[in-house]
């Protein structure tokens, strides 16, 4: 901000100078004393707007293409003479996607798994983080270290043993089978612990002197003043659960228990729609748009949560 303001001050000073004023310094002066000159505008456009516009376009164009294609009739897609906008927008692709595979059921399953999974994960994260910060226990350092290391272990490596375990308990094609193995939360615990450490100790001491036990201190003091951090953990968890793929893919093979990403794979593999891009784009829209809407509304929390660590080190 500071450079910008300084520059516009310069410009005004030069312009108000009745004598026309000599440019302050040779080379830079030319462009400075006439801020709206073509050269200046072109330079701003080329270095300022153009890269931004390009970057935005590269991101937005494929998603826009997805939405537009999902509204096109098959004849407009299976053609080599492409038009950007659909001639007569239709929801036929959505209808066909829903009749080929049970998309409404996929949606319901995704909602159930996401809501139950993220609720439990958030509660577990709050409880564990509170215990790690505010309750005395001999091996806290070692336990926290174990949680940090768990952050590094890719869930994909654990897929086969967990599959054998869940299958052994008849958990294939069940909600609990989809949800249970992912419930332990190292990420949420880590993030909330770092936040709890920054809470002023005096508040908790005051509550303790007033006779509040751990549970009252947790629910009536710590949780209410940690709203944004808990929201961050909740949103990142929701995004993760909704998009989760490898585990639901392995643990479900009956369509009525599949989540949306798995169902989209099923749609892609079914014979009648294997190359029907309009139908597949309709499916992609249903998977992508809910998270896009959540992101658009609450991105401040999501970006903060996902880029955590870059600041805390």
């Amino acid at each position: 901000m500071s450079t910008q303001t300084a520059e516009s001050f310069d410009e005004r000073a030069t312009r108000f100078d009745p004598a026309g004023g000599a440019p302050p310094s040779g080379s830079q002066g030319d462009s400075r004393d006439r801020p709206l000159s073509w050269r200046n505008l072109a330079r701003t456009a080329a270095t300022g707007y153009l890269p931004l516009l390009l970057a935005t376009l590269v991101v937005v164009a494929p998603l826009g293409w997805m939405v537009l294609s999902s509204l096109k009739a098959p004849g407009e897609i299976i053609t080599t003479s492409l038009s950007v906008l659909p001639h007569s927008p239709t929801l036929d692709n959505y209808a066909q996607a829903a009749t080929t595979v049970p998309f409404a059921r996929f949606f319901l399953n995704s909602v159930v798994v996401t809501v139950i999974g993220s609720t439990i994960k958030c509660v577990l994260a709050v409880l564990t983080a509170y215990a790690l910060v505010f309750v005395n226990f001999p091996f806290k350092k070692a336990i926290f270290l174990a949680i940090l290391v768990a952050l590094m272990v890719p869930p994909q490596v654990s897929v086969l043993p967990n599959y054998i375990f869940i299958a052994g308990l008849d958990g294939l094609n069940t909600y609990w089978g989809i949800i249970l193995p992912g419930l332990g939360t190292a990420f949420g615990t880590f993030l909330l612990r770092q936040h709890f450490l920054t809470l002023p100790a005096s508040i908790l001491e005051a509550a303790e002197i007033d006779g509040a036990g751990h549970f009252r201190r947790l629910w009536q003091v710590v949780v209410p003043i940690s709203g944004p951090s808990i929201a961050t953990v909740a949103l990142v968890t929701i995004v993760g659960e909704w998009n989760d793929y490898i585990w639901p893919l392995i643990v479900t093979d009956r369509p009525e228990m599949m989540t949306l990403p798995v169902g989209l794979t099923l749609l892609a593999n079914s014979d009648s729609t294997s190359q029907a891009w309009g139908v597949l784009m309709a499916g992609a829209v249903i998977v992508i748009i809910p998270i896009l809407v959540v992101f658009a509304a609450l991105q401040r929390f999501i970006v903060a949560g996902l880029t955590q660590g870059s600041v805390t080190g």
């Binding site: 935005t56 293409w65 299976i78 053609t79 990403p261 499916g283 998977v287």
Partner: peptide, 28 residues
């Protein structure tokens, strides 16, 4: 622009992969 550039990071890899598969289709 910042939000737009970050958005794909939170989207389903399956959905995104499907969209790009269509874009890369050698004929259509």
């Amino acid at each position: 622009a910042r939000s737009a550039v970050f958005a794909p990071y939170v989207l389903s890899g399956v959905g995104v992969g499907m969209v790009w598969l269509f874009i890369f289709d050698p004929v259509y």
